[in-house]
Design a binder for these strands. Structure first.
Lengths: 168, 168
DNA sequence: TACTGATCATCAGTATACTGTCAAGTTGTC
DNA sequence: GACAACTTGACAGTATACTGATGATCAGTA
């Protein structure tokens, strides 16, 4: 016999992992439905925001900012460039890097989409009462923050060191 | 000037959608790390559970049970079949369908993996205090349940009707 | 200066997760 | 039985989201 607490966690429809996946599905579906006219995906929007906050950054910095691995950000960046929303030019100081910047069209699109995106964020939480929304967001934020290092693509801001640089 | 409540929701790192995506990343990473020896993905495990609970079901029923669209479940099912964890045979009553069942190997693998999967579910919530975990899971469950219809692949159990069948 | 280790972007490969379309098969109605 | 409406699984196409490898470049040391 299993204990009460263990039972639930082994049932698919009560498992945290499963419910988290479904909530993500829902969030993406709401995003796509509400921002249809802008032809943007959640990640593309996040990348645009990231570039706006870090003008001239390289792809790795952007990947760390949106918490994504470099391969995936490369794909996203390519699509944004092909839509002429961003520009990519080789870095002068470090010629391995490609420096990223919004184009005027990109800047305009982010502004235009922002209120729809804000609406999506509220729609996700809409089923909860206001006090519950605050509680859920607090718990969610802490869960993500404290589990950050378990992610394969952890958030890193301002060139935080992952490991101390080798000194010997 | 924006109101206080609106400010946070527009900042990438506080946005519900972004945090949900990151928590899902973390959950998947933990799953893959803890179940490495079983060579299973979260979805493959969910599908195996779904087939075990619905022996002889068709792919659409399974898709509804794990809350996934039919195209994605088709890919998952194909991989499970190629690993000889499930069997697929044409339905006798309805020859469009493929009926799904676990093989002995599949049954054995689900059992073997279940404690590792259970451990993952607890690891996801580990940063929270026990009372907070209960609260988070309650809010998460309600959010998913009440937003179910917004998903492109909503959960449907036991052949729930999506729309009333045309009668005229 | 040559060497070592690290980093940057890219590539190939795998697995979700959807859209839309299609042929085959089923069901309800007349 | 004929017909229309629908369902089932398959397929092509797009976009995440990762792994592991590689070549180019950079930074620190001997």
């Amino acid at each position: 016999m299993l204990e009460k607490g263990t039972m639930a966690i082994l049932e698919l429809h009560s498992a945290p992992g499963h419910l988290i996946r479904r909530l993500q599905q829902i969030a993406v579906a709401l995003f796509m439905a509400e921002t249809r006219t802008f032809d943007l995906t959640p990640l593309q929007y996040a990348a645009l925001l990231g570039i706006r906050e870090n003008p001239g950054c390289d792809q790795t910095t952007l990947a760390n900012y949106v918490a994504l691995d470099r391969s995936t950000i490369a794909d996203v960046v390519e699509r944004l460039e092909s839509k002429a929303l961003i520009r990519r030019k080789p870095g002068a100081r470090d010629r391995r890097t490609k420096r990223l910047d919004l184009t005027p069209a990109g800047r305009k699109l982010v502004s235009a989409a922002s209120s729809a995106v804000g609406a999506v964020q509220e729609m996700i939480l809409a089923p909860l009462k206001p006090a519950e929304r605050v509680m859920f967001m607090d718990l969610l934020r802490r869960l993500v923050h404290l589990n950050n290092e378990h992610s394969r693509a952890p958030l890193r801001l301002n060139g935080e060191e992952t490991r101390p640089r080798r000194t010997a």
